[in-house]
Design a protein around this nucleic acid. Structure first.
Lengths: 276, 276
DNA sequence: CAGTGGTCTAGACCACGCG
DNA sequence: GCGTGGTCTAGACCACTGT
């Protein structure tokens, strides 16, 4: 067989070459290494391999899928980057406990997150107004001080239970679109995405604060209760800031989880400058 | 010299081959792809390439470093996984805005973290005792209920300022070593690493709580002040749990930061079950 | 020791972006 | 059409883990 028959459409020596084992296809679909990593991930999620089990050796996978070692290694590298497996030299890779991860979109969008948990997201608009950016906000969004910005405050609920109070500031080219949107029923992120505005990355800072009276009343907790605060700046594909957000969660109902597996940590601990 | 001489000691066709350009060495040191990714990362951090710049093409990097394309691609894959660059097909990779990240060790170890900020870490042991694992702890550490575990409580300080209260539970094979260690001066993680016990991964859950009276007194804050709580289970290379920790930070002094850049989010938002 | 994964090479075809 | 990165192959040496 020339695999080239299947894979490249080049010289076809004859018919009846054997086809690729298992269900790997080559018809303009996904790359082989991706098909393999998907298949392995599926098998792990289905429980065919339990945490702690050893994966088949690269040599066996190579022959099982009829591909070269490089392709197998690329598939395994994907799983390793996801934290699904975990290898060491001289020994087959180990299946790790299922790793948490959400699509990026579910982290940003309260609506998408709530729906993924089988709950009905909603929002109550507390305020929507145009403001002038102070120096902090201007720096965060990369605007000039005094530039007009749109400030939106919403209470976010899941199954009518208030979970989070959200204060978001948008630069004009994003925020101006809010006035034509359904802010209580639909996801802002989804509506913006439909208009070609997508978030490519975000930086989030997490700390805890005591609930101010206003926040406490809206969230239905006692004043000065601990709240989990997430301050976020979201960026578009070109690196421009799309929003600056201050989300405050009822800490008795919501928590955040981080998996650290690789050599570098996605979660970074930082010291806050003492006030002088 | 011929590369083969340096790298494999195999057949040497002739003398006067070219030597490897730049400062790549091969003497049992780091792998080539790692040397290259480190060099590129350093150049970006030093500002030699600004965010938005295009990296040299793979072909140029290949000839510049005198290695094969696979090695270059492996180096670039590392940077891509770190979020430092960002590529697309048909065009050289783009340098992205600098991303936060700490070595994994600095996230785990209070001592390493404080030193990286130029501060002097210290600890005050509040309690050290053997206990029996209750059902929750047994499940977390993968032990049987009632198994003996070692429970350590320490107040962690930087430059003598209390920042965090740490309650850690160890399984016996790890915890038994604590009784022979300097728990107030040296890093536990570093001491354990010297004995071959290394943390390969960890899962951390973050929320906010009001400071109980005891915690508040130790940390020097008002009772019921908001604290940032990080609960962590750390795993060894074989997937076995090495510790279960409950760290409570003064939220006026410490915060956590997460960068989300790729398609999947390292930070996951979770709902806490309502008490029935 | 044999077998494993980690690293590296040389060469190839393809899809995409740009001039 | 040309150069780019994305994918894939075949083969090699090395370091480590088990027996």
């Amino acid at each position: 067989m020339d695999k080239s028959v299947l894979r490249r459409g080049s010289v076809v020596p004859c018919g009846s070459g054997h086809h690729r084992p298992l269900s790997l296809v080559r018809a303009g679909s996904a790359p082989l290494h991706r098909q393999i990593s998907d298949a392995l991930r599926l098998a792990m999620e289905a429980g065919r391999w339990q945490p702690g089990d050893l994966l088949p050796s690269e040599a066996e996978l190579r022959s099982r899928y009829g591909v070269s070692r490089g392709t197998i290694r690329q598939a395994l590298a994907t799983l390793r980057a996801e934290g699904a497996i975990h290898g060491s030299r001289g020994r087959p890779a180990v299946v790790r406990a299922p790793s948490l991860s959400q699509p990026f979109n579910e982290l940003l969008s309260f609506s998408a997150w709530a729906r993924s948990l089988g709950r009905s997201p909603s929002a109550r608009v507390v305020g929507l107004e145009e403001r002038r950016a102070d120096s902090t906000m201007a720096a965060a969004l990369g605007l000039d001080e005094g530039s007009p910005v749109i400030h939106l405050v919403r209470l976010r609920l899941a199954d009518k239970e208030p979970l989070m109070l959200e204060r978001t500031t948008f630069p004009p080219q994003v925020g101006s679109r809010l006035f034509h949107m359904d802010l209580e029923g639909h996801s802002i992120y989804e509506s913006l995405a439909a208009q070609g505005i997508v978030v490519a990355s975000a930086r989030q800072r997490i700390d805890a604060i005591g609930a101010p009276t206003t926040d406490a009343r809206l969230l239905g907790v006692a004043s000065r209760s601990p709240l989990l605060r997430v301050r976020r700046i979201a960026f578009g594909p070109d690196g421009g800031a799309l929003e600056s957000a201050d989300d405050r969660y009822r800490s008795d109902r919501v928590s955040f989880t981080v998996d650290n597996s690789a050599g570098r940590a996605p979660l970074v601990r930082g010291l806050i400058q003492a006030v002088s």
